[in-house]
Amino acid sequence: MKVLTAEGAAQQLKTPLLVNGRGSQALHDAVVAYRANRRSGTRATKTKGTVRGSGKKPWAQKGTGRARAGYASSPIWRGGGVVFGPQPRDFSKKLPKKVKRLALRKALSGRIVEGAVLVSETIDLPQPKTKELVRRLDSWDRKETLLVVVEGHESPVWLAARNHPLIAVVTAAEVNAEDLLWPDRIVLEEPTLPILDQRLAVGGKQS
């Protein structure tokens, strides 16, 4: 494995890197959207209409000396409904394709400038075992988190990395800007570079 420098990226990628402030807002918006889209939005409280209990009037309107009461599920009663409590909702945010593309380009550019991106040949393992994968990743510090970007789902790296708590695997067609930000190191298989370059180009497919 070798470090992908800015000069090397300029030779292997047709799309130039972003080394200035352009794309920072797109990257922020993309990360916020990706995290919001993972929220389930299923928390809920019971209102006066859904709380358990009868709708029968507790006592007569007049003549008892007590305050008027229409139903036992009133929010002001113990065991009654909740007023303005959380209800199921959709937190998802939609991003334009151009914003996704710009965010991915900005994230990849920043990690390359940091020196956190490594390029490796296609990782062929004799057996899809974690020990074999760790042996192939000779430049990797065993205390660092690692993201391996592979060409497709048929790669044996998927099976080899699933038991390792510090290694994650994603395909070049599915990796997004947020994926590139969390690991300490990123390993790109050489066949993934044209795929990423195509996604960074205008009109490229975004996930």
Rank of each mutant, 00 (worst) to 15 (best):
S54W: 07
G55E: 09
P156N: 00
L159H: 11
D138W: 12
V134Q: 14
V149P: 11
H164W: 05
S120N: 13
V119R: 06
G79T: 13
A173D: 14
I112K: 01
V134K: 15
L108Y: 02
L147W: 05
K62C: 10
V170L: 12
S120V: 13
A107K: 00
V149I: 15
I167P: 03
W158H: 02
V169N: 02
W77V: 02
D90V: 06
D141F: 03
A60P: 01
K100C: 06
T64Q: 11
R68I: 14
G70V: 11
R89Y: 01
V150I: 04
K100V: 02
P58R: 01
N176D: 15
S74Q: 03
D141T: 05
G85W: 13
G63K: 10
E132P: 00
K94M: 07
R142M: 11
G115F: 05
T145A: 08
A116T: 00
D138S: 15
R52V: 05
P86D: 14
K106V: 03
I112W: 00
K94N: 09
T145Q: 06
P86S: 13
G81I: 10
N163M: 14
P58L: 08
E144W: 04
T171G: 09
T145L: 02
E114R: 15
K57R: 15
A69K: 07
G80H: 02
K56W: 06
G152T: 15
A161G: 11
R101Y: 00
S109T: 05
E114V: 08
R105Q: 15
V170Y: 04
G53I: 02
V170M: 15
S109I: 00
E144F: 03
R136L: 12
W77N: 11
P156E: 00
K106S: 04
R135M: 07
Y71C: 13
L95C: 11
R136H: 10
P165F: 05
E174Q: 15
W59V: 04
P88G: 04
P128Q: 02
A160F: 01
K57C: 04
V169Y: 02
L95I: 06
K93N: 09
D141K: 10
E174G: 07
Q87C: 12
G79D: 13
A173I: 12
A161K: 10
V117G: 01
L147F: 04
G63C: 09
T130S: 07
G79E: 13
E151C: 13
D124T: 12
K100Q: 11
L125T: 01
G152A: 14
K129F: 03
R52L: 03
E174S: 15
F91H: 15
V157P: 02
A60K: 15
